[in-house]
């Protein structure tokens, strides 16, 4: 068991370091090497600067020592990353970590809401579909679920902006909150806080809807499959013969055994949700981390782009890691298994 935890931890660390390495080389390969570009810009604008000054500034900006040997640059870069130094945004002139930590709560806010909503809707409908397997209800909802799950979520986004945003003018078409709204979150100002949160939710609602519609279809289909399998299990028949109430069977037997395997999938989906926000946030001009990734790309602000990428990857690593470590506590069936799968 201990070895299992050790293995998982080691794997998480190796993954993070590998991705950092990947980021380092990708940064250097980017068209119009950002270091050179920035250096040229500096020289042009500040002819009085010495070579050392310029080098220093470039290093500060990009977290790269331009003239050092490759391995030194690499070690310097990774060491910086490990201390939370993601470099400095070329365009904004502030540390990348600052931009990300400002944007991240918004993405987490929308994505976790969307994810939990889709999960709740999905497993409820999936369970009912399984109970009514083969009925019109089941067939209809199965096709609907497949259909929903087969549309990219940003397409639902475009459609919802077009229809609910521009045509019916029911929802705002972008932004985090109304311009006249003062961002307030505090226990001492409950009314303002509620009004602000409501406004933020209203602005995020189409984005959340787009993600939810697509993801709920997937969860419903998985839950349906799991439940149908459980409904066919011997222990369910025995439970009925033992005279247990249908309610207890539905919750303790079918529900529990069908949902538990989805637990890991949910945790991992949380990790991947950050990455999934890239196109969606652009569609809604919603300044979360995904939005800044594309912004960074378009402005050739590579440190920003790579910083977002690293944060997104770390989110997945964390999701997987937590799932690995806690699944045994959640599902007793997994307890006896260790890291014996390799």
């Amino acid at each position: 068991m201990q070895q299992y935890y050790l293995e998982r931890t080691l794997q998480a660390v190796i993954t993070v370091v590998s991705v950092m390495t990947l980021a380092f080389f990708l940064l250097r390969l980017m068209p119009g090497n950002p270091a050179d570009a920035y250096r040229a810009e500096l020289i042009q604008n500040n002819p009085q600067l010495s070579q050392a000054d310029i080098d220093h500034r470039v290093e500060q900006k990009l977290n790269v020592l331009p003239d050092a040997p490759l391995h030194e640059q690499y070690i310097n870069y990774v060491a910086g990353l490990l201390q939370g130094d993601l470099g400095e945004s070329i365009n904004e002139g502030v540390p990348v970590s600052e931009i990300i930590s400002e944007a991240l709560p918004w993405t987490i806010f929308t994505m976790s809401l969307a994810l939990l909503l889709s999960f709740a809707i999905g497993i409820s409908f999936g369970a009912i579909m399984a109970y009514k397997e083969g009925s019109y209800f089941d067939n209809g909802l199965s096709v609907l679920s497949i259909f929903c799950n087969s549309i990219p979520n940003y397409i639902v986004g475009i459609l919802s902006i077009w229809f609910l945003g521009y045509q019916l003018e029911l929802f705002p078409t972008g932004g985090r909150y109304s311009t006249e709204m003062e961002p307030t979150v505090g226990l001492l100002e409950p009314i303002q806080t509620l009004a602000f949160l409501g406004d933020a939710l209203w602005h995020a609602s189409l984005l959340i809807l787009s993600y939810t519609v697509v993801a709920a279809g997937g969860w419903a289909l998985r839950m349906r499959g799991n439940s149908i399998q459980v409904l066919g299990e011997e222990y369910l028949r025995v439970a009925r013969l033992r005279g247990l109430s249908e309610r207890r069977i539905a919750t303790r037997y079918v529900g529990r055994n069908a949902v538990l395997p989805l637990y890991t999938a949910l945790l991992i989906a949380i990790g991947f949700a950050l990455g999934g926000s890239v196109i969606l946030e652009q569609v809604f001009t919603y300044p979360g981390v995904g939005y800044y990734m594309i912004e960074g790309l378009e402005a050739r602000d590579y440190p920003l782009m790579m910083g977002v990428f690293l944060v997104m990857t770390v989110a997945v690593v964390l999701g997987v890691y937590i799932a690995d470590l806690t699944y045994g506590l959640i599902d007793p069936r997994a307890q006896t298994r260790g890291g014996d799968h390799r």
Binding site: E233, E234, Y235, R237, V238, R252, R256, L260, P332, R333
Partner: peptide, 15 residues
């Protein structure tokens, strides 16, 4: 009754 599938007659997530 004791079932044929004795090994799968218990709810795996219930003590």
């Amino acid at each position: 009754m004791v079932f044929q599938g004795a090994l799968s007659s218990f709810n795996p997530t219930l003590k």
